[in-house]
Amino acid sequence: MIEAEKSFVIGAPIDSVWDYVRDIGKWASLLPGCRECAIIDEHNSRWTIKVGAGGLVKTVNVLVCVEKWDGPERVNFTYKLESEPVVGGGCYIASKAGPQATDVRLQLRVEGSGPMAPMWEAVCKPLFNPLAGAFTEKLKTEIEQYVGVPALPDADNSGSGSVMAVVVRWLRKLWLAVAGGNQSQSLRSQELLANKDKVMSEQNKQVVLKFINAMGSSDGATAATCLAQDAFTLAKGFGKFAGIRRYDTIVGTIDAFKQLVPTGLRPDIKSVTAESDRVVVEFEGNATTCDGKPYNNQYCMVFTLADGKIKQVNEYFCTILAEDVLWPLIEKMADAIPQS
């Protein structure tokens, strides 16, 4: 059995997400190479998918059965290829991450059966993870568009002629071809994703480190160059600092931070992990506030990037310490900080 799990945050309330997700036809349209989805009844549908593998394009029919529509938190489903001895299943798990944010986890599995099961799994394996990744990436974008979160800037308008922009444009073109069903391209959906991973991770890492350093030295202008127009940070937790901040607020806060913490955060980076569109950084601050108190918080930030820009940051830090040390200062200076 091969398994994959993808989790991500959608910048939309859980009920809007559910509104989208409860329609199985929409799921099908997100799967690369899916040509048709015939709804049989509330639980069953038949998807016709063209998959490219091993130098050929194969049309497979997949019977999908949603065993449980348990909205808005959960959907359980199984599937079965009509002509090949391959079965699988998975579940969709959603939870509220904030008033405007939903945590989504997608668990998927695939399994060969019969005497040739090991072969089917060997063939499915390199396809499965990229396909799951492509699917979740699209799911997120589509839902955000559906509920009206500002759309991705078009790579063609991103203006920069950087290598990254070129790579991204190329990837998009391929991606459109895949989704739009040009076969010689859908053939390579897995490959483009694999390649994208490699190219992207390293460049993304550099963008994120630049951002953290800019943040640490309260350099809003530099930080701004790392952010997408529709970027948002999502401070996790339940205290006063929790919640979403968008582009202007992020940049404004970084600039204003100087007044709260004249030393800057002085981040001491402990680890950086980059994988495809995501960079995770663990670091510790070593700062002194404007009233002379130490402020040494510990952070883990999960960055999601697109087109070489930061789109989303999930921030984890000790909100109790932040509230204790920073909140009184912020209250005093509230006017200096742009409202979110």
Partner: peptide
């Protein structure tokens, strides 16, 4: 006799291309 092949080899080669 594909049925007897060692598909872990195939799996690894496909993954590494």
């Amino acid at each position: 006799n594909m049925i007897n092949w060692d598909f872990s080899v195939m799996s690894e080669r496909l993954s590494k291309d």
